[in-house]
Write a protein that binds this DNA or RNA. Structure first.
Lengths: 218, 218
DNA sequence: TTTATTTTTTAGACCGATCTAAAAATTGAC
DNA sequence: GTCAATTTTTAGATCGGTCTAAAAAATAAA
């Protein structure tokens, strides 16, 4: 059984390692956990003895198969809860992350399966991220960053990379949502900002920063 | 902000003090928290400095107005979550307590208000216990213990006092539920067991122990 | 390839929640 | 009212998660 804190470390390791494909360095983990490298070293030893990661001094950590499954279960819970909050309780998509950070630690396999049933087995959460299934299988939809798309090509918004409340609120404000159709009308050389149309109608400018945080498909 | 543990202590104090009316002794609290008296003394000091209880050495603790409100909020959350689990996610009434013990600690006023809205502002939880409102007001329905009722009188099951899974499963098995109409057909002098009819049909024997854990109204 | 810089680990401490063992206060018996 | 039994508190230790400061290893620079 993992503690609240251990679960958070494991989740961070999973994300920083791109789903377990790369090693994660101590300092990177320290930064993402808002803690100090010394604390990370301690925790990493513990997670290692629990078989969640393999840890070699000075070489960073690698998540194990067991650890990956564990991480995916936490992510599954997080995303199912986010979906519940938006879909059932009428939260806005920028309000759910913090609450889901708490709810993801509730221990009850029955609860999460019943929640999944109730929600109708959603494939993605309100930010467009895929929800791992019961077995930990995750279906990644191939998508690209908006800023890399060609001019005049119709693309559909699939997910946000950075899900910070302020970014999400901004998107809502200008009318961008998951499923919206965008077209790049113009690229501004100077600052990398884009002029786009939303659903063929509204025409707005978005910054390079925003464009780099929108994932789309053609 | 109270920790998980502090919240559990406060809830126990609230219950053991009958809603804040009596003082609670150290040993009683230790027993209900499955811990040692020494640990209770430490925690009680902390809750006292936080203004949740007043503590006087060797005389037990009394919950303060602030502490009572805090306790009622935790109870509100617990009971709303139990209602959600049964009403929305199709849990059986004997499966919800443990999960609600976890969910009651989620910190989000918005969540609990939205949950309350979604559930349609239920007045009681699946075990018949009243749900405190947003302001901490709790409407106790005057009810009596089944074993004290007169023979032949029709009574309605309102709540269970002991909500242990085994008791609840037993009740389900014999067909007793919140809202059922019971009539005491006979009292057995020897062991205090009762012969009752359920909804005027089924006739069963229940033990004194069971009869003392069913709350009814006439 | 030796030195300087960065990264990581170790050592030792603190805090919160718990424990055991022993001391102190209260209660009950006579 | 004194002594024994019970209850409660204190003292000191442990454990998990964190920290700072210093040591050690790895990396980059000269």
């Amino acid at each position: 059984m993992l503690s609240f804190t251990e679960e958070n470390y494991l989740k961070s390791i999973y994300h920083l390692s791109n789903g377990g494909t790369q090693a994660v360095l101590t300092n990177a983990l320290a930064e993402s956990m808002n803690t100090k490298a010394a604390s990370v070293t301690d925790m990493v030893k513990k997670l290692s003895t629990k078989g969640m990661i393999s840890y070699e001094k000075y070489y960073g950590v690698k998540i194990t198969r067991v650890g990956k499954t564990e991480a995916l279960m936490i992510i599954r819970k997080h995303r199912l809860w986010e979906t519940f909050l938006v879909q059932t309780l009428q939260f806005n998509w920028d309000e759910v992350h913090e609450v889901a950070e708490q709810l993801e630690h509730i221990q009850s396999p029955l609860l999460i399966e019943k929640l999944d049933d109730f929600l109708g087995h959603p494939r993605t959460d309100p930010h467009g991220h895929p929800i791992p299934d019961k077995a930990g299988k995750i279906v990644e939809i191939k998508q690209v960053i908006l800023s890399t798309c060609a001019l005049r090509k119709k693309v559909m918004v699939r997910a946000v990379r950075n899900g910070s409340p302020s970014f999400l609120q901004y998107l809502s404000k200008i009318g961008v949502y998951i499923g919206a159709t965008l077209t790049i009308v113009d690229k501004v050389e100077f600052d990398g900002s884009l002029e786009i149309t939303i659903d063929g109608k509204k025409k707005v400018f978005i910054s390079r920063d925003a464009a780099e945080n929108l994932m789309v498909t053609e």
